[in-house]
């Protein structure tokens, strides 16, 4: 896992919001297509609902993983923000801390997007 720490990229920062965006898209597109083509697809409503539940669990898992990596990048909270010194270490810790906050936000957002999955029962005809 050493290589992970050596790569300098912003992608760690974007991972969680990207997962949030993909999860949002998958949920809405899946139901839009399913409801528009109800007769054409041999899927039941609950199958789609369960599949999206699975997608949600995977999305939350990826976000938790991203949060854990961010926590590690931040040094497990050994040092307090604002990490504004012009050094490699502060830059790394700042990115780690920002990623951790974004991961938290994305986690909550994915949960909110999934709320209708719990309550929805049918396509609006």
């Amino acid at each position: 896992m050493k290589w992970l720490r050596e790569i300098e990229t912003f992608w760690t920062l974007f991972t969680a919001p990207t997962v949030w965006a993909l999860h949002f898209l998958i949920c809405y597109v899946a139901f839009a297509v399913f409801c528009a083509k109800q007769g054409a697809l041999a899927l039941s409503f609950d199958t789609v609902r369960l599949a999206l539940g699975g997608v949600t669990v995977v999305a939350l898992g990826v976000i938790v993983l991203s949060a854990w990596l961010a926590w590690r990048q931040w040094g497990f909270g050994t040092d307090d923000p604002p990490h504004d010194a012009p050094t490699d270490e502060d830059r790394r810790k700042f990115q780690g801390f920002a990623t951790l906050l974004l991961a938290g936000l994305s986690f909550v957002a994915v949960l909110y997007v999934s709320v209708p999955l719990l309550f929805i029962g049918a396509c609006q005809s």
């Binding site: 909110y112 709320v115 209708p116 719990l118 309550f119 929805i120 029962g121 049918a122 609006q124």
Partner: peptide
């Protein structure tokens, strides 16, 4: 949010 979504008649 859960309460508002739960209330919508068409979704349940």
């Amino acid at each position: 949010l859960s309460y508002a979504v739960w209330l919508m008649p068409q979704v349940r």
